[in-house]
Design a protein around this nucleic acid. Structure first.
Lengths: 373, 373
DNA sequence: CTGTTAGCGCGTTCAT
DNA sequence: ATGAACGCGCTAACAG
C-alpha cells in the first residue's frame, strides 16, 4: 500500500542506494540519473519514511521550541520567528525537501512538563532544542534540567537558550541569547523617578522565575540608587507552598507577585492600592499584567497618567494601542527568535563566549507622567 | 555509548520483548518482572528510541497542530488548549510514558507552507493532524489539500478541523469543529443596526479565507435584512494578484480588505473614513484589527463611541481592557482547542455527521453606542 | 506470562 | 558514479 524507496528505485531502474543519494543530495549523482529518480518520486507520490530515515541516520530533522505559554504573544512572536528560520520557505511543490520540522512545545510554565518535553524530544533524537523565556529557579529542577540537557547535547542535539540565561554547565553545543531584563527594569524605574515618583508599586511575575527576578532587581537597583530603597530584600520568606495570588508575604509591601496574566495585574493592583494608597506609579512585570493594572486603576476611579502612572514590559503589539499608550520596555522578540532559529540550524555562529545579551529599549509613551502636586 | 532496549533487557535478565511490553504497557506482564525492568530503565537512564519504535510499529506519537499565525493569540489559545489534551500531564518523573508529542506548526498563512508541513507530518507518520483557523479558498490549493489529507487519512492519521469548515471529501477519520462566524457576524451588525447605525464600514480580513468570507456574509445578511444592502456583491473582481493592502477594488465602497493585523486595521479605517466620512460605525474582521481601527479613529480626532462605534471579533483577552472596552463576538477558543485535542487523541467521539458548529456569543461593551443626532 | 524470530525502510559502508 | 549487503533499535507475530 505504502510506496517505499525500493519502489522508486525499481521504477527509475536504479538501486535503492542511488535514490537515497539523490534525495539527500549529499552525494555525486549523474544529472540524468537524478532526473529519472525525481520523476519516479513524483509519479509514485513517494514520501520519505521519517522514522526509518532517522533510525538509519541516527538523527532526525525535528527541532523543538519550548515555550511557557503559547497563548501569550511574547512567546508566540519568538516561536514564530524561530520557525521561519527552521521550517524553510518550502519549494512550493509541497514535496518537502531538506527542511527541518520546527515544532513548538507548550510547557504551561510547569517544570514537569518542561522535562517531559525534553525527554520526548530526546526520544525523537531531535536535531536541536530552543528554550525560550524565563527559567524556573528551583535548584532541584535546575539540576534535573542541566542533566537532561547534558544528555541531549551528548547525543548531538544542539541547545539554544532564547530570552533566558544559560545553565551553569556551559557546553560547546550550547548558545544563549539573554534579554537585558535587569537593565530594562532599571531604566524603566529610573524614568519614573526622574518624573518625580517616589512611591512606586511593583506587580511582579511568579516567584522563582529568572525573568521575574531580573526585572525586579533592575527596579530595585534604580530605587536604591535614588535613595528610595525598600526596608529589606524579599528574602524568599514566602516559602514553598505560597502559590499564585501570594500577595503580602513579602518584606516589601510595594511588591506583589502573581502569574503573568491580566487578572493577576488587576488583583495585584487593587491589593497594592489598598496597602499603599499613596503610590503614584505602578510598574507591571509585563504588558499583559499592565493592562490588568490599568483596568484596576480605572475601576478605582483614577485616571492614567494624571492620578497614577502605569508601565509595562515587552512592548507587545497591543501596547501602543492602549489608551493612553503604554510606557514599556521593548524587547526585540522577533529578531531574537529568528536568531535563535538560525543558531539552532547551525546557520549562524554562536556569540563569543556562547552568550549574547540582547538590549532592551525604553519606550516612553502616554501612560507615565509626573505625579500630581 | 547510547543505551538500548537490549541493554535494559540484559540488566533486568529478561528478553527485549518483555521490556518493550512493560514500556508500552499494552501487554500483560508480571508485576515483579515489570518492577525489575523499570528499575533497570531508571538505573540505565534509558530513553526509548522514537524513530526505531515508530518504524517497527508503523506509527508515531507525533500530533501536528497547524496554525496560520502563532503570534496571534487567537491561534495561541487554541493550540495551547489542544496541547493540554495531547501532551498528557506528565508523571512528574520526566520519564515520559505513553504521551504523545503535540507540536505546533506555524504556516504563516501560506498555502505552500501548509502543504509542506503536512508532507513533513506525513513523513513522520503523525498520529493525528489538527488544522486550525480559516482555510484558503483557492480551488487549486483546496484540491491539493484534499489530496494530501486523503493520503494522510489513508495512512491512519486522524484529521481534525478546528475553527474551519471541513473539505468536501468527508472522510471517516475526519472530525470538524466549525465556528459560527456567519451567525456571529450577523448578530454583531444587527446590534449596530438596532442602535440606529445606517452607514457601517467593514474592515475585512484577507480575501480567499473562509473566516473572512463567512464573517462578511453575516454582516451583509444583517444589512440586507434591514434593507441596507450594498449595491452589489463583491464578485471577486479584485482578481488574482490583488494582494494585501488591496483597498478599493471592491464593488462595495464600505468594505476594505487587509491582513489580520493591527496595521491593516489602522490603514483600512483611514481609507474608509476618506471614502465615506459619514460612516457612524466600523466593524473589524477581528479584535486585533479593531484595535488598529480604534487608533485610526482617535488619530482623526474622533471619539469612540460618541463619534464612531467600533466592534471586533473573537473576544481576545485584551479586548475587555481596551478603552472603551470592545464590543465583539466571543468564540470559545480554549474549549474548542481542547475538544479538538481530544478528538485528535480519539478520547472523544466525533460529533454526529462529523461536524459540529460552535456558537458565537455577542459581547456588547462600551465601544458601540447609538450614533449622534 | 515470557522468549525467539523476523522484519519495518532506510543510510551507509564496501566494492565495482 | 552506481550497486550489494548489512544493521540501526524496536515491535509483532508465533511459539512455548
Amino acid at each position: 500500500m505504502t510506496v517505499t524507496l525500493a519502489d522508486v528505485a525499481a521504477r527509475a531502474r536504479v538501486s535503492p542506494a542511488t535514490v537515497s543519494r539523490v534525495l539527500n543530495g549529499n552525494y555525486p549523482v549523474a544529472a540524468s540519473t537524478r532526473e529519472r529518480v525525481l520523476r519516479a518520486v513524483d509519479d509514485l507520490d513517494y514520501v520519505l519514511n521519517g522514522p526509518a530515515s532517522s533510525l538509519a541516520a541516527a538523527t532526525s530533522d525535528l527541532v523543538g521550541i519550548l515555550v511557557n505559554d503559547i497563548a501569550d504573544p511574547f512567546f508566540g512572536i519568538m516561536a514564530g520567528a524561530a520557525q521561519t528560520q527552521i521550517g524553510g520557505p518550502g519549494d512550493g511543490s509541497g514535496r518537502a525537501g531538506g527542511e527541518k520540522l520546527a515544532v513548538i512545545c507548550n510547557t504551561g510554565g510547569s517544570p514537569e512538563r518542561e522535562l517531559t518535553y525534553l525527554t520526548l524530544l530526546q526520544r525523537q533524537r531531535a536535531a536541536a532544542v530552543v528554550l525560550t523565556g524565563g527559567a524556573v529557579e528551583n535548584p532541584e529542577h535546575q539540576a534535573a534540567m542541566a542533566a537532561k540537557l547534558a544528555k541531549l547535547a551528548d547525543a548531538g542535539t544542539r541547545i539554544v537558550f532564547c530570552g533566558r540565561p544559560p545553565l551553569p554547565e556551559g557546553d560547546a553545543l550550547v548558545a544563549a541569547l539573554a534579554f537585558d531584563n535587569r537593565g530594562g527594569g532599571r531604566r524603566l524605574t529610573e524614568h519614573l523617578i526622574s518624573l518625580g515618583h517616589r512611591r512606586i508599586g511593583y506587580v511582579a511575575g511568579p516567584r522563582e522565575r529568572t525573568t521575574t527576578r531580573h526585572r525586579l532587581e533592575g527596579h530595585r537597583e534604580a530605587l536604591h540608587a535614588a535613595g528610595l530603597g525598600a526596608p529589606a530584600a524579599e528574602g524568599g520568606a514566602g516559602g514553598p507552598g505560597a502559590g499564585s495570588g501570594d500577595q503580602g508575604a513579602d518584606g516589601d509591601p510595594l511588591v506583589v507577585h502573581g502569574p503573568y496574566d491580566r487578572r493577576s495585574g488587576y488583583e495585584a493592583t487593587l491589593e497594592l492600592l489598598r496597602r499603599a494608597p499613596d503610590v503614584t506609579a505602578i510598574v507591571a512585570a509585563n504588558d499583559t499584567v499592565a493592562l490588568g493594572a490599568c483596568a484596576a486603576v480605572r475601576d478605582q476611579g483614577m485616571r492614567i497618567p494624571q492620578d497614577i502612572s502605569v508601565a509595562g514590559f515587552d512592548d507587545l503589539p497591543f501596547s501602543v494601542d492602549a489608551v493612553p499608550a503604554l510606557t514599556t520596555v521593548r524587547l526585540p522578540l522577533f529578531e531574537a527568535g529568528a536568531r535563535a532559529g538560525r543558531l539552532a540550524m547551525g546557520k549562524e555562529n554562536p556569540p563569543p563566549g556562547g552568550i549574547a545579551t540582547i538590549a532592551a529599549e525604553l519606550m516612553i509613551r502616554g501612560s507615565t507622567a509626573a505625579p500630581r502636586g
